[in-house]
């Protein structure tokens, strides 16, 4: 069994009200340790107001080759965008 610390993904909330954003990853022995390391590695210049750490092994990602089946169906549904409808300017903001 490997003695290497597991990998963690780090997410930082840059400002109050914003979503956390992925900033990078690091190794740590457990969640608390990962938070401490994240603080040292990613927020030395007060980059954020909140940190999330998630075990990298727990992240499930979509595969790049699935791009077509995931996103192409939206191509012929331009009506989902408000600009699809011609609304006269006199009517005001809508």
């Amino acid at each position: 069994m490997s003695n290497e610390w597991p990998l963690w993904e780090v997410f930082i909330r840059g400002q109050h009200g914003l979503s956390h954003r992925h900033v990078g990853s690091l190794h740590a022995s457990d969640a608390e340790h990962a938070l401490q390391n994240a603080r040292d590695v990613y927020t030395r210049r007060k980059e954020g107001v909140s940190i999330w750490v998630v075990p990298a092994a727990d992240i499930t990602a979509s595969a790049p080759e699935d791009k077509g089946s995931l996103y192409d169906p939206a191509d012929d549904k331009v009506y989902r965008h408000p600009t699809f409808f011609d609304i006269p300017d006199d009517v005001g903001a809508m």
Partner: peptide, 24 residues
């Protein structure tokens, strides 16, 4: 409340389509 506010941002972006399709 952060999660409520952020949900509203997404919703408002999509809501404009709804009103315009109605007016159309």
């Amino acid at each position: 409340f952060g999660p409520y506010a952020r949900a509203m941002v997404r919703i408002c972006k999509e809501e404009s389509f709804h009103q315009r399709q109605g007016f159309d």
